[in-house]
Amino acid sequence: MPTVVITGASAGIGRATARLYGRRGADVVLVARGKGGLEAAADEVAALGGRPLVQTADVSDPAQVEAVAEAAEKEFGPIDVWINCAFSSVFAPFEEITPEEYKRITEVTYLGFVNGTRAALKRMLPRDRGTIVQVGSALGERSIPLQSGYCGAKHAVNGFTSALRVELLHRGSNVHVTVAQMPAVNTPQFDWVRDRLSRHPMPVPPIYQPEVAARGVAYAADHPRRKQYYVGATTVATIWANRLAPALLDRYLARTGFDSQQTDSVPPSGLGNLFEPADRERADDQGAHGSFDEVSHARSWQEILVRHPAATVLGTGAAVLGAVSAIRRLAS
């Protein structure tokens, strides 16, 4: 059975991905800061048929990430797949985010991926095998307001990964790195995130369940030769709309991007999990899902298309046409 390391495994996409690999009977190394969520995730992996290993670590610290890799190989043997998924954010206009907060977002959401990739490559390169999956976002190509720190970090992940991919190709390595670009996903981050909004933050609809994202991550790990995978039709449409008419999209998001990321309910405390985990104890565990189950999609037609090359071409064409149609509506 493969050995899979998942950072950000205590909740959201990472948690759903851990469950998926548990069903496969994999050896799953669960990494996050919050012990409560990790312990609950470990129980789920074991119940589903996998073997879990809990590793409490802050991915912004390269020494802690290196210790995770050492523990994983000591317990289970060579790491086959390393999935970087941990992140942090602040929902606020740029000028209301402090330098310390911006630094922290970048250290976790960007450098956390760099640290995880470094630890994985240290072991994979000498063996000339292994796969690294970066859990990205459509916001890594199309930024939106109120999430400048997160968007900047996800853009950085794309740039870093592209450079690394070329280096691996240059040396003829059989180690693969790919990116799974995500849509809006119903995760607990919108209850945990630090914010300075007047209303509760939310993902921009349409929203997908974390299981949709997890299937996209696993598919990318199983087929890592492609540069990146788009999860969810909205991811494809957003990226193509940005490529075709970025200035128009800027104006549209300036009009709609603030309200579309907030509900009408009272916001959280505002403290969030930026510097401390929100799930320190088992009672704090929220699982994979956030607060938007009633409006989230459990399936995506695009995830079916991506498994069939011919259908993928048709699906991408349809998404491009959809993006063009959307641009025309925005311009009218």
Rank of each mutant, 00 (worst) to 15 (best):
A156Q: 09
G140A: 02
A218I: 10
T131K: 00
R171H: 05
R243K: 14
V295A: 06
G112F: 08
R23N: 12
P205Q: 06
I13K: 07
T7L: 03
A218H: 04
A221I: 08
R15T: 00
T17Q: 02
S162Y: 15
L274D: 01
Y150A: 04
K154S: 01
S265L: 12
L30K: 08
A92W: 11
A163K: 13
A220Y: 08
N174R: 14
F292T: 04
L274M: 10
Y208R: 02
L314S: 12
D264R: 11
R199Y: 11
G8I: 08
G50V: 03
V114R: 04
L244G: 01
Q134K: 07
P2T: 10
E70P: 07
Y208H: 10
A18H: 01
P277Y: 09
H223S: 05
R194A: 14
V193H: 00
Y21K: 03
H170S: 15
D284G: 10
D293K: 11
N174K: 15
P205E: 07
S143R: 09
K122E: 15
Y219L: 06
V217G: 04
A298G: 15
G149E: 07
Q64H: 09
S162I: 14
L111W: 13
I144E: 12
G272W: 00
Y229D: 06
I239T: 06
A9G: 06
R215I: 06
G270S: 07
Q55F: 08
D284S: 11
T178E: 04
I13T: 08
G12H: 05
M182C: 11
E96T: 08
R51Q: 14
A41T: 14
H308W: 12
P210H: 00
A319F: 09
L305M: 08
N174W: 05
E281Q: 12
H200C: 07
P246H: 09
G159D: 09
S296E: 11
W82C: 06
V320L: 08
Y102A: 13
D43C: 01
G172Y: 05
T56A: 15
A9C: 03
L48C: 07
K154H: 02
D285I: 04
V31K: 05
P126H: 10
F94V: 09
P267A: 14
I239W: 04
A233W: 03
R33S: 03
L111K: 09
D284Y: 11
E39A: 10
R255L: 14
